[in-house]
Simulated scan of single mutants.
Amino acid sequence: MADLALLFARLSARGLLEMQTGDGPFRSGPASLDPLFPQALRGLFARAQAQAPASHAALVQALALRHLSAPRLAGKLYRFNTLPGRAAPEPLPEADARFLRSTPPGWIYWNHRARAVSAALRHKVYLSPVPSAFGETLQRLHALAADCDVTAYKCGAGAQGAARPDKLVVYFADAAERGRFVARLEREFAGIAGQGVPFARPLDPRGFAAMAEDPPPGPGERVSWRAHVAREIAGTLAAMPAARTSADALEDLLRHLLLARIDLFGWMPDGALPKERMA
């Protein structure tokens, strides 16, 4: 029922559907959410805890820290679920006949030599092994990326890179290329414990893999999907009156995310309904 209620809420909020509650008038647009949304909210938040535990925990943390400024809270949300880690083990994969290696601040990139890396690479998969499995996962990823002709991938550099939840990011030219990669994940990375990436769509129950789709780049700025969601959450909470209860603040926050076209179940842009799942 939560799925159906949320679908109706999306359509009505955009003016594509009119809803009637009880004997009241038919209403459309954002105001139509008021009678329906509290009912959908209970099932929605419970389901989020089961299906996207890292995102659910981040929302709980955001509500507890809503007294912070929006930029500071956004930074904490973006880094949420970072764990104590160790330095990335050497040797890391080197450049080879297929991939060119580069080291911008904080990251190590491997780019396919025959493909241009551009803002069009909005489709991504996160691999989130626990820090102790970072080196093993990276070695397996390098072999799989070559076999699947992945466009580009990167890993966080040093101890901080190994500790962050989004420590390995794989970029794809389109959803089809991503789908071919996802189909291999369970077989290639079986048995590796996951850490969990907030604000990305989980691909498996252990928190090892997730995916996202970055917003189209704006003038002079390219923002990742997770950073975009963190900013939306932080800005909304920071603007709320301090006297709002946590329950009311949560309801207001989820209503805002719905109107901002963020998929509250899957943590993807609303309307992007990819079918990829680890088998």
Score class of each variant (00 low, 15 high):
M1Y: 00
A2D: 05
D3P: 02
A9H: 14
S12R: 01
A31T: 06
A31K: 14
L33N: 04
L33A: 14
P35K: 08
L36S: 10
L36P: 05
A48Q: 15
Q51C: 04
A52L: 06
P53V: 06
L59K: 04
L59Q: 07
L63E: 01
L63T: 00
L63P: 00
H67S: 02
L68K: 01
L77W: 08
F80D: 09
F80L: 15
P84Y: 04
A88N: 15
A88Y: 00
P89A: 13
P93H: 10
E94L: 13
A97M: 09
A97P: 02
L100P: 03
R101H: 13
S102W: 09
T103K: 12
P105E: 14
P105C: 13
N111F: 13
N111G: 05
N111D: 15
H112C: 02
A116E: 11
V117G: 06
S118C: 12
A119R: 04
L121V: 01
R122I: 06
K124G: 04
L127V: 10
S128L: 10
P131T: 04
S132T: 01
A133L: 08
A133V: 15
G135K: 00
E136R: 05
T137K: 08
R140S: 00
H142G: 03
D149G: 07
T151S: 06
Y153E: 07
Y153P: 01
G156F: 05
A157I: 08
A157T: 12
G158W: 13
Q160E: 15
G161P: 10
R164H: 05
K167S: 14
L168I: 15
L168F: 12
L168C: 11
Y171L: 01
F172A: 06
D174G: 03
E177L: 05
R178V: 06
V182N: 10
A183D: 06
L185K: 07
E186W: 05
E186M: 00
R187Y: 03
A190I: 11
G191H: 01
Q195E: 13
Q195H: 08
G196H: 01
P198Q: 08
P202N: 07
P202T: 07
G207T: 14
F208K: 01
A210S: 14
A212K: 13
D214E: 10
D214H: 05
P216V: 10
V229F: 12
A234I: 13
L237K: 03
A238N: 01
A238W: 00
A238I: 02
P241L: 00
R244K: 10
R244W: 08
T245M: 06
A247E: 11
D248R: 10
L250V: 04
E251F: 10
L253G: 02
H256L: 00
A260W: 03
R261V: 03
I262M: 02
G266M: 08
G271I: 01
K275T: 15
E276Q: 12
